[in-house]
Design a protein around this nucleic acid. Structure first.
Lengths: 353, 353
DNA sequence: CGATTCCATGGAATCGATTACATAGTTTTC
DNA sequence: GAAAACTATGTAATCGATTCCATGGAATCG
């Protein structure tokens, strides 16, 4: 058992525990002589301060929590990595928690963090089931407790918390313009769950982009997934059976895209020829795919760093402005000219033009 | 500020803080009457116990740490997910740390955990650079401090710590037998970094499988990667330029496979025809690939659960046996009969046969 | 029925650090 | 050269829970 306390160090160095503490925590009022003695003794004994005792008294834990909605989604693990690296560089530990897209688990984690008195929290907020914009009770208590909080990726309209989000409006406009230019008019959308603000934002931006490009908004071309692979697969089947036979599709995240592309491969759909595909999230697998998939990508490292910066600002008593990152569209060979007439076009007249 | 302490609760309930503490931590010696009063008061005031103070006195944190070597590798994020779920089910919080395949970062994390007095640690151990089997100083201190430790996925030969590992011997035997049966004789191996015991185990098992199937072991067909996508891409180019023109390849993890397959797609290599591919780690992207890739998969959920079980056993003072999971080979269309002679065979005489 | 055991409870010590306050010694200032 | 201002240090209080110990009252026992 490592029972070495600061008193042991103080005794070994021949000073009081107060002096030892001052030396070890870098307090200026220490003489070079005692500094040397204490440091030598601490090293000699292999002293490791007890973080509990330290933060009980000082009310600082040098720890922040990061709550994401799915560790296994590469989007979030990239984000987690960026946040963790940046926090690490500032000497802050990161507690990573996983809500599993489930608000009960989110609350468990928040309760644990509140109890551990973390210095701050970065989270991808999850609305409550029916009422997507209402924060959970635990989140309200956490905010009420004065714990600095920053939202990243998603936001909750009713909650006054700085947020770092991504805007896909511009990228989707470009994407839809490109598709239109290639002759696509019936563009399907495989979206995410309504409780995620990201999903709503992408859906909204998709509709806006159609409109901006003079295309009809047709809700029957929208499939509601849940950001996980299984729903992408279901969306892929739904699209194959769709009476309107869309010629292009935009998918709202990478796991769903992987699920969908798997189904289309099995069904023998020629991606890029029969069906043009664009997906959110530029993960490596999209570049591995033959043909490579066009993507709308986010600057996740940037967002992670910005979140940490915003959080440290809040911790310092400031109120940072919300920050919005602009997503980026990259065209790849998964897009091609829409099949004109012929083939799959049965009984669906082109809408006046 | 949430300044509600147990004293406030005690006062509101009209009892002493000792009684309040007993009620709230489920101590048996409490009367129904005071139990009711304290619980009502705690709820009323929204009391959240201070975990620091609690564990300072009780020397329990109900927290374990999980140290993995790369959060962004789906293999490890799956493992993390399994560990976290299992621990959560047992009322234990999990601190997830990321060593980034870097032993300095590993030590930082271990120091932080030692200071926070976590109840236990599950880790994917990282040898020191040159001396792959020697534990870092921090790890030695952590073990010396009496903190229960369990290794998962990898192990360190010199360290007496229960470990949960995966054996790929059987799966590789089956894989190589399958390849041989299809006429492949020159099988390349894109392996991992030597400091990872998993990488060494897979390499060893690969050689053993060649031998068991009567094939020559040719170290010139072994490429040393680092488990990340970039090295897979380099391995892919190395293979294309290889004078022996291997007809099949086994890749030691999924990120390298994705990197490699991307290069081969760009180079127009027909996977499954010109080149048969088997990879470790059954991630979704491998099933999305056309043709789907044959994999050697691990029961990550099982390993995660076993790791938590082993750790709780150690925490309870027992010494659980090391456990080895058997990996599983799944053949898919990425394998086909080796091209006999012809095509790419320029000036590379078949090695005596 | 007196003695013993059991229970619920409160007072106070405790965990291991930090830090307010007091003090003695040293340096600066007018 | 005396007052003022630092400086380095030690003593003791403190953070918020848990837990040891003592106590008074109720239940059990012989």
């Amino acid at each position: 058992m490592n029972a070495i306390t600061i008193k042991d160090v103080a005794k070994a160095a021949g000073v009081s525990s107060a002096t030892a503490s001052r030396v070890l925590s870098g307090h200026p009022a220490t003489s070079p002589a005692s500094r040397a003695k204490v440091e030598a003794a601490a090293k000699e004994l292999g002293f490791v301060p007890n973080a509990q005792a330290r933060s009980l008294r000082s009310t600082k834990t040098d720890t922040i929590a990061l709550l994401i909605s799915d560790v296994r989604n590469p989007y979030f693990s990239d984000l987690a990595h960026a946040v963790e690296q940046q926090a690490h560089a500032e000497g802050i530990m990161t507690f990573i928690g996983n809500a599993n897209e489930d608000s009960a688990q989110q609350d468990d984690f928040l309760a644990a963090m509140l109890s551990r008195r973390v210095d701050g929290l970065i989270m991808v907020p999850q609305g409550l089931g029916e009422d997507a914009e209402r924060p959970s009770g635990m989140l309200q208590r956490l905010i009420a407790s004065g714990t600095p909080v920053v939202f990243v990726d998603r936001s909750l309209a009713g909650v006054q918390v700085p947020s770092i989000t991504a805007s896909s409006t511009e990228a989707l406009n470009e994407a839809i313009a490109t598709l239109k230019h290639l002759g696509h008019e019936k563009i399907a959308f495989i979206g995410g769950p309504d409780h995620a603000s990201t999903a709503r934002e992408r859906h909204r931006a998709f509709d806006a982009a159609l409109e901006a490009n003079g295309l009809d908004i047709d809700e029957s071309l929208h499939f509601a997934g849940d950001f996980k692979a299984g729903s992408g697969a279901r969306g892929a089947r739904w699209l194959l059976d769709h009476p309107a036979a869309p010629t292009a599709v935009v998918i709202a995240d990478a796991p769903m895209a992987i699920g969908a592309l798997t189904v289309w491969r099995e069904a023998g759909v020629a991606i890029g020829q029969e069906l043009s595909v664009i997906t959110f999230d530029e993960v490596d697998a999209m570049l591995m795919h033959d043909p490579p998939i066009s993507t709308i990508s986010h600057d996740l490292s940037g967002m992670g760093r910005a979140a940490v910066a915003a959080l440290t600002a809040v911790m310092a008593g400031q109120s940072p402005e919300p920050e919005e990152f602009i997503s980026h569209f990259t065209q790849r060979e998964s897009l091609s000219r829409a099949r004109t007439g012929a083939a799959k076009m049965e009984g669906t007249p082109t809408h006046e033009s």
